[in-house]
């Protein structure tokens, strides 16, 4: 249930933002889920809905829209680009779970598939991002 902690950060950020914008209620929250973090969507959505109860401003039921963002990794050494899904099957369970908790340990457990360099960057699809909030003033 590490998803719960991330869901809590989303709900708190959405409420903070809605207060700043003087919204009376939040009707829609769009969240991008980076492929690298390998979030269990059902657990995450359950946590979001549970944590949304009794918030001020209120969050409408089923307000959350989850969109998966495919990852893109770029090698700084040779310029190669690839997706995490291309290499996930080469990881053991412990390595994959570590990347689930801390996506940056992808630099520890994987290398560029073309040149073997550990010097690459995550250009897309790292983790959970709050994309937009819609509400009523």
């Amino acid at each position: 249930m590490h998803e719960w902690a991330l869901a809590e950060s989303i709900v708190m950020a959405a409420v903070d933002e809605a207060r700043k914008e003087k919204l009376k209620s939040i009707t829609q929250v769009t969240i991008f889920i980076g492929e690298l973090q390998q979030i269990e969507k059902e657990i995450f959505l359950f946590a979001l809905n549970e944590l949304s109860k009794s918030q001020k401003p209120s969050i409408k039921k089923d307000a959350f829209i989850l969109k998966t963002e495919k990852s893109m990794l770029l090698c700084k050494n040779c310029g190669n680009t690839w997706k995490f899904s291309d290499m996930k099957k080469k990881l053991n369970e412990a390595e994959s779970e570590s990347i689930h908790f801390i996506p940056e340990v992808v630099f520890v457990h994987t290398r560029c598939p073309r040149c073997g360099s550990p010097d690459f960057e995550i250009t897309k699809g790292r983790g959970v991002v709050l994309s937009s909030i819609t509400g009523v003033r």
Partner: peptide
């Protein structure tokens, strides 16, 4: 716990992301 004693080649932006993640979860 997550690196298994392997070398950790992190750049600055990754360091900040790891700290944020550890503090948030």
């Amino acid at each position: 716990y997550f690196t298994e004693e392997k070398p950790s080649p992190f750049r600055g932006v990754d360091i900040s992301n790891i700290i944020l993640e550890l503090l948030a979860i």
